[in-house]
Design a protein around this nucleic acid. Structure first.
Lengths: 216, 216, 216, 216
DNA sequence: GATGAATGAGGGTTCATTCAT
DNA sequence: TATGAATGAACCCTCATTCAT
């Protein structure tokens, strides 16, 4: 009879009242539905079903649909940032390191899950301007920032010609990812095959290094 | 006497049933609402109001919401394509022509109207896959195609180094537009000022030409 | 340019303003749709289409949907009455005459067209009480009345036992038609085959005549 | 403590999801409106109002209007069948038993509630063919079947002449009920007074027994 | 007379949200 | 905490009817 035993939020989390397995469960269901249908197209009913909880429970963990969406984005954002940060250059040559980075960046970005998230966010920008900026900073901008650091060092130690490393980072990303990204965004093409991806990246690298590599 | 002028489905467009002032009026209202709210967020009621017609009238001109949306996209696509085709290189130097093209392309793409349309399309890709591809082909791809022609000629007459002009076109567009586009897409930045735009384009051009320009 | 030639209502009808080919055309379309969908289920749009006229024209000939329906029923009623009146006993024996009458009555009533009309009327009785009574009088009652005359004579000339000819008429119709009618009304059975119809009628006649035939 | 009693979908019916007081409430409101307006004429709004629930609640208990209608018919059918089965012959003479059956059958059928239901069903036969057949089997046919059993026994024990008891049942029902039924169906007459009903039944019985009673 | 574009009320249905349990 | 029944506003769409031509 006592409710004690059933009390959740036990473990360690409970940052703002309740963070728990159930909260995660809801976010997982919400992610699935929001990705597939967009913000407006997703119904709380569908989310509850996908999460395997009752509709009422949704409102125990989240104030309303907006908040659920925003929390979900924050979540996605965290994961995206973590994935980006996880990349560790391991190859021997400078070019190979850049190549590996570009390839794994491309792979991350064009994954169908990620593209769905991006579309979901982009489609909601008008209604949730903050969400768009948030996501952008976690994704594109974070990638640029990491590269900027790398390029800053490379300029400092003379591997790259003297230049604004931020601009270089933008150029690198543009050359190696924008074509693939654009197509994926519009659903206009299937994910490139590994061979295509390699070719695209190599082409980009040629141009990039032709300009930025120090001519000693 | 002459009923000719007033006749709906008359001279100009009239692909099928009726094309008329009212049809245009509805499309204008629909564009406004779809851009602001996305496909799912837009209500036929709101569209009717924005268009200044009754809800019933919407259904005289369009079978249903889907069709209205698709027609609107087709419309947007036509306008976008026309705007791209309208560009005529007029400057004296090769670099200046590319510069002018890049600037006007950037301006076209980052116009708030256009960005809203893109977001609307991207947000609807999951439900209307064809619409995404359609839009992509009318926009990004068409721009690339035009450039490919230009670069093909330039390779032929020796101004550019021997290379695949399609790849060159992708690289050019990526270098000169992707940064601005990405930010605009996520609503993460205001439109760049003319000075910023010029700087971005010039940076891109430096890299591009450094690689692609024929070395005497 | 003159409208003279096109002026309708020319022929001879024009009982109450305009009766014409077009009016007939409309009623034919209306009959088709009302039968298929019932009063509420029929849309003026569908009727206009079925009649091959514009929706506006409907309102030139009929005040509104109700009136169109009522006029249609009046029409049907007239045709039903005419069909009943058209029956002429021609056989030699009394029994054969009754048999022929019952068979043709059954055939008339269970025709799919007629059944649809009856269902349409029955379904509308609650909203149009007068229509039900009207139809009943033109159909069932008129059949009974005709038979009552026949039976009155037969009682008078000694072929039938002394009895109330109205009651006899009811019994005759009940015995020979009610089973088939009921099933048809509910759509619970296909129309009986000619053999079945004959058997049913003969069974009914046996009972009827067993009681009503003068015992010499 | 005991949540048992209040639990929806509890003891009694509960064929599938939930059967409850509220479900009954809705069916009652629906019956009222469907009877009065027919299937097409009844609006879910009106039904909700009549049932005293919100429109949304309708859709918690029934998938859609069609299903609500069909469930209602199934309900009516059950009640009708129960009413018919409930009849227990109690009188002393064979004739009196038949008389009592005919009178109560007439009373059941011509009750305004029942007639409304029949009209509702008949009016919907074109759209719901199954519903018509269902209702027919529960009503007219079930009555016939019961009588067939009775007559079968009566033939067996020599009270009735040798004959097909099914045909006899049809004849009995036709003679005693069809006149009243037909008028009621078309709303062409008020319910007969008890005296009229008795007269009609007695007239029918005379004819029926004249033929079917065993001649000693 | 005949048309069909235009209307806005109302159709069936879904929705985000609340609340008693 | 977790539920799911209940709500009523809002959804897309159809309707009977009107009216300028």
């Amino acid at each position: 009879m006592s409710k004690v035993a059933a009390q959740p939020g036990g473990s360690a989390a409970g940052v703002e009242g309740h963070d728990s397995e159930k909260r995660r469960q809801i976010l997982d269901g919400a992610r699935e539905v929001f990705r597939a249908k967009g913000y407006e197209g997703a119904s709380m009913d569908a989310i509850a079903k996908a999460a395997g909880v009752s509709k009422g429970t949704l409102y125990v963990y989240f104030t309303n649909k907006d908040e659920l969406f925003e929390q979900l984005i924050a979540d996605e954002k965290r994961e995206l940032a973590a994935a980006l940060d996880a990349f560790q250059p391991a190859a021997e040559s400078f070019r190979d390191n850049l190549r590996a980075f570009a390839l794994s960046f491309n792979e991350l970005l064009t994954g169908e899950n990620h593209m769905s998230s991006i579309r979901m966010v982009v489609g909601a920008v008008e209604k949730f301007p903050a969400v768009g900026a948030l996501f952008f900073r976690a994704g594109a901008e974070r990638g640029t920032t990491r590269l900027t650091e790398v390029f800053g060092e490379a300029v400092a130690d003379g591997r790259l010609r003297p230049c604004d490393p931020t601009v270089a980072a933008h150029h690198f990303i543009a050359l190696c990812t924008s074509e693939v990204m654009k197509k994926a965004l519009f659903g206009a093409a299937l994910r490139p095959t590994p061979e295509e991806a390699i070719r695209i990246v190599d082409n980009g690298l040629d141009v990039f290094l032709s300009y930025y590599l120090a001519k000693d």
